[in-house]
Design a protein around this nucleic acid. Sequence first.
DNA 1: TGAAATGTTGGGGCG
DNA 2: ACGCCCCAACATTTC
Length: 472
Amino acid sequence: MSSAQHVVIHWFRRDLRLSDNPALFQAAAAGKVLPIYILDDEDAAQHAMGGASRWWLHHSLASLDRALGGTLNVYRGNAQAVLMQIVKRHRAQTVYWNRCYEPWRMKRDAHIKEMLKQEGVGAESFNGSLLWEPWEIRKDDGTPYRVFTPFYRRGCLNAPPPRELLPIPALLDSIGDAAAPGLESLSLLPRIRWDKQLEPHWYIGEKAAQDRLYAFLRDGISDYKQGRNFPAKAHVSRLSPYLHFGEISPHQAWYAARAQGDDANIDHFCSELGWREFSYHLLYQFPELPRKNLQSKFDRFPWRHDDAALARWQLGQTGYPIVDAGMRELWQTGYMHNRVRMIVASFLVKNLLLDWRHGERWFWDCLVDADLANNSASWQWVAGCGADAAPYFRIFNPVGQGQKFDPDGTYTRHFVPELKNIADKYLFCPWEAPQSVLADADVVLGKTYPAPMIDISSSRALALQAFAELKT
DNA sequence: TGAAATGTTGGGGCG
DNA sequence: ACGCCCCAACATTTC
């Protein structure tokens, strides 16, 4: 029997692409490929996918199915049970997949591999989504890095370079499974179609990811280092959702950027891919990162409990224009510019004194790029309880940040149109504007736009006091 | 990948 | 002309 007649399975997970896909590449060389996707996150306990992620996944799977000529087979349920049924039904010889790194998935995948072997079925796993495996990068003494710069410079950049890119398999003989229930059965789209507002902002799938990368390399990277701080400018890559779902690999982004030459902007972009590696490294080394303070002294931090305040933050009604702009960008588009993520996060944790987990949870539900490693590592970073965290005393001033990084107010006015006619001078602090200025701009504080929900300087002082008490 | 408080310096107004 | 003070502008430290 020739190998081309064997049925093998490629289990798509967070590698929703055909190019540079190590497991798919090997599967295609081994026989007829039954490509499958299993909606398995019912097993994820607290981190089942959020609404925005589910919406993205729906369209990403539809796109992948088209690329596979309609042969993508989609299931839902307990991954192990579903997989074993498929294996038996098709007498599959081997199952191929690219590794995932959520703690619950790693544990489960090890179990599945064991089970397949017991049944006499091959199981082959590959690295499809990280430049370096999280267990590869260690300090000389064998312990994990906890600071980004040495992790990246000494750890990553001195390790063997990321593997070379792989092409789309030349001969991909993919087959369907008549018993697969299909994409609609996953019910990934919400009943109330709030997702319609996300649609105009995104173009989803492998082709879209490639286009986004090359548009960024053409138009955005030249001034990346500075420009990435300005939310009104197109100097960030916006690759995060594509990277999360594996519509593009970090290897593709890394080598495409490196191929453009060698300057500070390109280095900086690569180091941002390095932050993604660092997050995965932390999640691997500290599996409780998503819910537990990495620095346990934060366990006794006196977080406030205030549902009304949390709701105002979530809905972009804090009365601080740059914060509200960011929160509304998130709600309307499923995305938020990185600079603004830091501003709104600092505001939640250090001015409202609300637990970072509330922010983590909201971002998890709303972001199309919601990623367990990046989201939890970044929230812990902002809160000051993480690895290589922002020091507790680093508190962003939302007025100054707005003036500095959105100087002409383009971004803020777009998402907070009720302030669009107010002069730049008062855009980020409308409560300081003379009554005549407010009247001319048709602004009535507390009516057309909220009055500031807290005082920035006294809340800052309160936070400093609370954080200082942790040290004792 | 901060901001505010505090310290230092030097130009210019003014008695 | 000189010393004194004020206060930007910048630097340092503190949170």
